[in-house]
Design a protein around this nucleic acid. Structure first.
Ligand SMILES: NC(=O)c1ccc[n+]([C@@H]2O[C@H](COP(=O)([O-])OP(=O)(O)OC[C@H]3O[C@@H](n4cnc5c(N)ncnc54)[C@H](O)[C@@H]3O)[C@@H](O)[C@H]2O)c1
Ligand SMILES: NC(=O)c1ccc[n+]([C@@H]2O[C@H](COP(=O)([O-])OP(=O)(O)OC[C@H]3O[C@@H](n4cnc5c(N)ncnc54)[C@H](O)[C@@H]3O)[C@@H](O)[C@H]2O)c1
Lengths: 214, 214
DNA sequence: CCTTTTTTGTTCCTTTTTTCACAACACTGA
DNA sequence: TCAGTGTTGTGAAAAAAGGAACAAAAAAGG
């Protein structure tokens, strides 16, 4: 039962569950049923229950789920209770926003260092995070760094990723609108806000009118 | 054949295809096979061919796809050749980054107006986009606006969305880490960068070690 | 203590998405 | 012109994801 193989789709939902549980704990809600939780995150309650069941019996019949317990379980599952250190490459508009944010809410992840090529930025600090030269990245040993956030212009994304890879980084969150070519033992996630906006517009133009005409 | 029902998964990939084709046209590549294209976007070539086939026969056997033609077809499909106007709500760190960016590359979408509650920001401009008071949103007629980009703090996201909805907006790109509750004739897309980073870390911890042990 | 209500965990069925396999067709070069 | 090669478009199979239904267990309320 416990933790056989967790489907990709389930794994993608875990962070949403975790964040929602954090919120519930904060507002003092100690228990929740799968259907109430489902309403909250807008996912079918069966899907919720099945997702949790991959990790064993986390709930109690006739009661629901203990929010505190479930949250802690997910925290361990997601982070294995270690602080995940990440670096950010490209301190431009988007990079600066991310540094200022620095995933404050979420104390298990921290941007520990930033890199850029701009001499004006190198040596300065944003929100307590120091900005270093790209040359330093090339020589660094970053095996303790979980991931690199890439917020450089698309034309430089591959180059920046290669440097990070050489320094020992094995995870990438790529914000540039370009596909990276990296070895298969490296994990890349792509966040493309332009694509998101285009997809939204497409669905408004097509999917919606279909739904309306039914 | 042509445009029966386009699966959700296919529709989600169209913007990526479009962007990649733009790049190919820019660098002067006039034709491409599904397998070469597939390598580029890291999607199986069969999936590429099937995706395109929902729109009819866009390629030529023994030749491949004409990049210019395919790009133009996708542009029409995605935008129906109209400029999509969007507004942005919440001119903070992230909102400012988006305004500075303003989807320059992509001339079919434009942030025409921004809204905030901060009196210091109201009346100023960022990258040519004027920042208005939220009160103006409440009274505005925004039926010509395709979508609203929400970059307000999570605690205010629902409230901001409700105002936008009342002014006639029917599409939302929500960057706040919260689930919005809106009528079903409204389309909401959620971009959660925190979740993306958590998912990345989860996959690094679990999926990767599985792949390695095989 | 017993009955009724709630709610999980899971089985089974449906839908969606991906992948395989290949016939059909169009280019290419001699 | 014609053999040979490349590449699409698609039907059929496989895999993944989603959702209905319900037995079993626990809680709640007398
Ligand atoms: N700003 C946004 O809202 C937004 C939205 C969607 C996508 N993006 C994408 O995110 C990326 C960054 O966008 P931005 O608006 O922050 O751009 P930006 O131009 O403001 O910042 C880019 C930063 O990267 C640095 N840089 C350039 N080349 C580098 C290199 N080789 N190594 C390290 N650093 C380098 C620059 O000095 C600059 O500080 C782009 O790919 C952009 O397409 C941004
Ligand atoms: N900055 C990031 O990199 C980042 C990363 C992930 C998620 N987010 C999310 O994006 C959202 C915005 O983040 P941010 O860093 O830009 O925050 P921020 O605090 O810098 O900006 C928020 C802006 O919204 C305005 N605002 C507040 N209440 C409002 C209301 N009711 N109506 C209109 N405007 C209002 C504020 O005046 C401010 O300008 C947050 O929900 C945050 O969690 C941001």
């Amino acid at each position: 039962m416990s933790s056989q193989h967790v489907p990709q789709a389930t794994a993608e939902r875990l962070p949403l569950y975790y964040r929602t549980l954090q919120h519930l704990v904060t507002i003092g809600k100690t228990r929740i049923s799968s259907s109430e939780f489902g309403n909250l995150v807008q996912i079918d309650s069966t899907t919720i229950r099945k997702d949790f069941s991959y990790f064993g019996a986390l709930g109690r019949k006739g009661y629901g789920y203990d929010t505190q317990h479930l949250m802690e379980f997910l925290r361990k599952t997601l982070y294995q209770d270690e602080l995940s250190k990440v670096v950010l490459i490209g301190v431009g508009h988007l990079g600066t926003a991310l540094l200022n944010h620095n995933f404050q809410k979420n104390n298990n992840t921290k941007i520990v260092r930033a890199y850029d090529v701009d001499p004006k930025k190198i040596g300065t600090e944003i929100s307590g995070t120091e900005i270093c030269a790209m040359d330093e990245l090339a020589g660094a040993d970053n095996h303790d760094i979980t991931a690199a956030i890439l917020t450089v212009p698309a034309a430089h994304a591959q180059e920046a990723a290669d440097l990070a890879l050489a320094s020992g980084i094995r995870g990438f969150l790529n914000f540039s609108p370009t596909t990276l070519s990296l070895p298969s033992n490296v994990y890349v996630r792509h966040v493309d806000m332009t694509v998101e906006l285009q997809a939204l517009i497409y669905f408004l133009n097509h999917a919606m009118e279909q739904r309306n005409s039914q």
